[in-house]
Design a protein around this nucleic acid. Sequence first.
DNA 1: GTCTATACTCCGATAGAC
DNA 2: GTCTATCGGAGTATAGAC
Lengths: 198, 198
Amino acid sequence: MSANRGYHHGDLRAALIEASFGLLAENGLHGFSVAAVARRSGVSSAAPYRHFPDRDHLLSAVSATAAQDMRTAIASAADQAGSDPAARLAAAAGAYVRYVAATGAGFHVIFAAGLYAIEDDSRREHTRALMDTLLDLATATAVGSHTEAVRLVEAMIAVAHGYTSLFADDFFARNNSTADEIAARAVEATRLLIPAGT
Amino acid sequence: MSANRGYHHGDLRAALIEASFGLLAENGLHGFSVAAVARRSGVSSAAPYRHFPDRDHLLSAVSATAAQDMRTAIASAADQAGSDPAARLAAAAGAYVRYVAATGAGFHVIFAAGLYAIEDDSRREHTRALMDTLLDLATATAVGSHTEAVRLVEAMIAVAHGYTSLFADDFFARNNSTADEIAARAVEATRLLIPAGT
DNA sequence: GTCTATACTCCGATAGAC
DNA sequence: GTCTATCGGAGTATAGAC
């Protein structure tokens, strides 16, 4: 902003993260590379290394941002779903599908292999907050124990991630399905996985 | 077998496909390359090109084998599940998880991008047979229409594929979960998605 | 802080010897 | 049918100029 004394950007770091989301949305994790991110940002392939020591640290920053934004999207969807705990958790599955369809940054990115070894407090905080939010939504559905809540969250994630993966791989291509339609199906399916309530 | 006049194999083509499964199981689709398959088979990186014109044709042959074997595994699991249509379809989800955990060859491999463009009658027959088997299992659960059966198959695949993806990405690592445990959860979840019956 | 240039590795694919 | 050798392309990462 105020300090735009460089060649191209006032904040290349932020621009690189933003470009990463674009790449992930278009080509998936497979299409993510420091070189491609640099190209998309209009800088040389060496420039990113002034802001991130290596590829995994850039991906870790993307992961932190994704976890934060996804948590916001899920919390917002749950609130719009009203007060019924089952409806709120199911809505979270829909928010997951829509977020990943738009950004390409699902759990396979947020918890990508190799990221666990990286020291990145921001990422750890945001991923933990995301999981806590999901766990709270599951616990509210009158499950009997913490273990059951964890199992329910995992089931909900499996459904959401499964639909998302198939959608990203064009498995529903013949149907001309939209992300919103797939999200709606993930909501329905998640609703069926929640015991007892209504 | 009888014609082992070459350097290493009597049937390098089959050995390459077998090696491909090993690579997929260990490193996923990301770790699949003609060079790596050749290394694992103990031949030079040029040898595979005598049996497959390019990378995608090798992958297509792997896809055909995977579709055939997965269909067999699913049909077998359904038969062992008895006569209840809902239990049979749910068992198919478990078979999917176990097969992909063992081989790495899930729908993301069987229907991998780029394969659709390849002319490979074997692959087309086996993938079609696989989908027909799943559709038959879904139709038997007293669904109201063909569209509903398709939707049910897609939901079951989403659940199975979701659990499988998370398992492959070590998402359940802290729990020390086994493939059989994850498969059992996929069976339970699928069972909940099936309407009406019992 | 970004550039150009470069070294290294890996992969896909081909040419030609045997 | 398999080998060695090679080319071209893409990616990670570093060195040094500006």
